[in-house]
Design a protein around this nucleic acid. Structure first.
Length: 516
RNA sequence: GCCGCCAUCGUCUAGCCCGGUCAGGACGCCAGGUUUUCAUCCUGGAAAUCAGGGGUUCGAAUCCCCUUGGCGGUACCA
């Protein structure tokens, strides 16, 4: 019987969650769900130089927003209520962060003593050694090796020249030290990657990796292996940048005598210049996409498709998270890197916006309306309106805009005539080479038609019907001037839609103005 | 430099394992249509000599070898 599947997403708090990280998280999550396993979030914060204040919280809230729920690991304090009676303790190092589950700590900086102990065990077993070399010496040998066209590796000076007594003395006198892995020579290290198949590397090309830094923190390699083992991680699913260091990790698992998890290395996400997507470039933080008004469904769907597809002749491209949980197969993940191209995201987002109910669209749009100046002044000018009346009006606007929106931040943007008085060149009212009198007649006809419709019958269908009857086969003659009179714009939704949103009174007023 | 990974339309990709459809789909782009404009929607189109070269084979995107290119790693960063 196989062990219960346990996978984890393990970001470093060096900034916001970016799309590459989101994809790693998503694939881990999907793998867990598909296989009835646990999805865990741990934090790899062993590098205090690159630590960014608030990054842990930001990482978690992005993950939460997108809906990748964890079974264990690190949570924001106010989101732990639905986790049942799992062990639940407050983080030592991060206020407001909770660690939930039986395999903690889930934050590496809270586990320092353990890493140190295991590193020392390795030394005692002769599989690692103390190194007292200073950075200047390290830099020098590196330079020399590069000059000689050799791989810039550590020369094992401390292993060969420092005796056990000397080590003890230096340790006693508080000399700065690191602990290095003693990498065996002439060994072919081989492993089966879930995505790439067999990968092998000669141990001679692996440096004696530092396991414990002189500041008392473990390096990624040591900490990662130890807590993955402690957490019972069964599959390590991570970015391709880790592929070359996997043999080091395997060596460590072996040195400890532990079971080696399976590995899956995801292809990199590339920017349009085909370079690894970097945080330096804009538009990589999940938060940015949230702010721009992308729906989580679209982001998830898009990211899932970057390097994965259903296959088996299927051409399906629109997937819900729930669907992905059922059909995701890590074996179908691509090997090649994928360029992160926004065009398809926009299209997907538009698809998901169209699926929203008006209530949902309204709820999601409010915060974006609130940022718009045209909305703010409209809101002030309508202070006599009840909250319900405003809501009703906005929902009408949204109903018209729904099929025109690529993202929520565009809301109202292209239809500001719904919110403000309009001004336009009177010539715009003219349909083709219509004469002045024809234009006047057209506008008067519209006024007559709209006036005759009762407020209670003020529906798009009905308005349209009446207008079409009045227009006969010369629709442009009636509809174009009406549309411009209502919108003041060259491009806009149809006149019936405009009239419907604006209401009878305002529509008639705008028509009168056009006539004047 | 050294080590490793990868390679099908502009982009995401199907097909490759088990050789044999004009190399299929989607986004984007172009054109036309859908009871005025915009959007939606529909239809059609351009778009990859399957990185290149050599094999194997009656036949290769698919199997083998070489080359090239791209990317990643080469830290007391992750």
């Amino acid at each position: 019987m196989d062990k219960k599947i346990r996978v984890r997403f393990a970001p470093s708090p060096t900034g916001y969650l970016h799309v590459g990280g989101l994809r790693s998280a998503l694939y881990n999550y999907l793998f867990a769900k598909k296989n009835g396993g646990n999805f865990i979030l741990k934090i790899e914060d062993t590098d205090r130089k690159r630590f960014v204040e608030g990054a842990v919280e930001s990482l978690i809230s992005s993950l939460d927003w997108v809906g990748l729920n964890r079974d264990e690991g690190v949570f924001l304090k106010d989101t732990t209520s639905n986790l049942g009676d799992k062990k639940n303790i407050e983080s030592e190092n991060y206020p407001g962060i909770m660690e939930v589950g039986d395999f903690g700590p889930y934050i590496q900086s809270e586990n320092l003593a353990m890493y140190k102990k295991y590193a020392e065990d390795l030394v005692a077993a002769g599989k690692a050694y103390y190194c007292f070399c200073e950075q200047t010496r390290l830099d020098a040998i590196k330079e020399e090796r590069i000059a000689n066209k050799q791989a810039p590796m550590y020369d094992r000076y401390c292993l060969k020249n420092v005796s056990a007594e000397e080590v003890n003395e230096k340790l006693k006198s508080n000399c700065a030290y690191t602990i290095r892995l003693k990498v065996p020579a002439d060994e072919i290290i081989e492993f089966e990657d879930l995505i790439r198949g067999k990968v092998s590397i000669n141990s001679n090309t692996i440096d004696d990796q530092v396991l414990m830094k002189s500041d008392g923190f473990p390096t990624y390699h040591l900490a990662n292996v130890i807590d993955d083992h402690m957490m019972g991680t069964t599959q390590v699913i991570r970015g391709e940048e880790w592929l070359p260091s996997t043999p080091k990790h395997i060596l460590l698992y072996r040195a400890f005598g532990w079971d080696i998890p399976e590995f899956a290395h995801l292809p990199l996400l590339l920017s349009t210049d085909k370079k690894k997507l970097s945080k330096r470039m804009n538009d990589v933080a999940v938060e940015d996409y949230i702010k721009k008004g992308y729906l989580k469904e679209a982001i998830i769907n898009f990211v899932a498709l970057l390097g994965w597809n259903l296959g088996e002749g299927s051409t399906q491209e629109v997937f819900s998270l729930q669907e992905l949980e059922r059909v995701f197969d890590i074996k179908r993940v691509h090997k090649a890197g994928a360029v992160f191209d926004l065009k398809k995201l926009d299209w997907l987002n538009a698809q998901y916006i169209k699926k929203l109910s008006i209530d949902e669209l309204y709820q999601k749009s409010l915060e974006f309306f609130a940022q718009k100046d045209f909305y703010k002044s409209w809101n002030v000018e309508r202070e006599s309106w009840s909250v319900e009346k405003k809501e009703k009006y906005l929902k009408k606007v949204l109903q018209i805009e729904q099929e025109r929106l690529n993202n929520l931040s565009e809301v109202g943007e292209n239809n500001q005539f719904f919110f403000a008085d309009i001004s336009y060149d009177k010539n715009l009212l003219r349909w083709k080479d219509m004469s002045d009198t024809a234009l006047q007649e057209s506008l008067e006809k519209s006024i007559a038609v709209l006036s005759a419709i009762d407020e209670s019958d003020w529906e798009i269908k009905n308005i349209e019907e009446k207008l079409f009857v009045a227009a006969g086969d010369k629709k442009g003659d009636l509809l174009w001037p009406l549309r411009v009179a209502l919108s003041g714009a060259q491009k806009s939704p149809s006149p019936m839609e405009l009239a419907w949103v604006l209401g009878k009174v305002e529509s008639l007023q705008r028509l009168q103005k056009a006539l004047a």
